[in-house]
Design a protein around this nucleic acid. Structure first.
Ligand SMILES: [Mn+2]
Ligand SMILES: [Mn+2]
Ligand SMILES: [Mn+2]
Ligand SMILES: [Mn+2]
Lengths: 148, 148
DNA sequence: TAACTAACTTAGTCATGCCTAAATTGGAAC
DNA sequence: GTTCCAATTTAGGCATGACTAAGTTAGTTA
């Protein structure tokens, strides 16, 4: 009689590891479209992200495969709970960074650009730190004035 | 007699456009190695960035092609003026972000990780804003204490 | 000086994401 | 019910940047 395997699951199913910046950008924009238009069609996502429709179709199918949204060919899509959680999370980072840089007086266009990249590299503890700082700064007009 | 071409140079030579995060990481590390060990060999860069030697050789040849460093096969490399400028620039962003997050009391390991990603998305004006903020915060111990 | 070997390069492959061009689909208009 | 066409999907490519495996090089050592 042979010994039973000790480890049955080494890793459940190539666990959703870490989301890439691209995945976060798609999810964030999809949630935003759903919140403002009520739905997110391939053409909307493509226009909004300035990416070809073909690329969007491709990514949407991939996100479906990863369980971040449910997609029906030629029809439409809805975020799953997992997808919406990720979307809200990246949206929060985007918003916080934007608020923070606005407080510092950085130009809107630059903020847009920089935040779009930085948001993908903010750990929870860094997020909290900047959140706290932002809150404190907001009640110190004197200091804020000196920052510009 | 045919008409002469009107546009000889549409774009000098696919100008060094914008450096990728990878290029910046390589240049930053190369400069750091040169400053601490006096030279940067392929094996050093590979170990330091935790990337295979083959990948480093590949990138080093590419950076040579882009005029960011001079490379002699099997021998060694030196940064060009353009390469060193870029290297110092990314190093500065890295340092500033690190200082800033340290001030906020973020854990060293987290800082390392986040800065390594964020540093590639900081425009000059955002850099200046955080620089100013950091300087002001440094002379406000009371406020800093409240941030932790 | 001949052998050894760490460092290096080359060759071939892969994943991620993006593109254009060429079908396909399905709802709206006639 | 057909036709039309915008939206969508598929097919085929390309750039970036990483990997492993298989050579090559050159400096050290015996
Ligand atoms: Mn983004
Ligand atoms: Mn965003
Ligand atoms: Mn980096
Ligand atoms: Mn760095």
């Amino acid at each position: 009689m042979r010994a039973l395997p000790v480890l049955v699951h080494v890793s459940a199913k190539t666990n959703a590891s870490r989301s890439s910046a691209a995945v976060e950008d798609y999810l964030e924009r999809i949630l935003e479209l759903i919140n403002t238009k009520g739905y997110a069609r391939v053409v909307d996502i493509a226009t909004s992200l300035d990416i070809s429709q073909a690329s969007v179709t491709n990514m949407v199918q991939r996100l479906d495969g990863e369980g971040l949204l449910k997609y029906e060919k030629y029809r439409g899509l809805v975020l799953t709970t997992a997808g919406e959680t990720l979307a809200r999370n990246i949206a929060r980072r985007h918003q916080l960074l934007t608020d923070f840089l606005k407080l510092l007086g950085v130009d809107e266009r630059v903020i847009e650009h920089d935040v779009e990249g930085m948001e993908h590299h903010i750990s929870p503890s860094t997020l909290r730190a900047i959140e706290t700082l932002t809150a404190q700064l907001k009640r110190r007009p004197a200091l804020l004035a000196r920052l510009r």
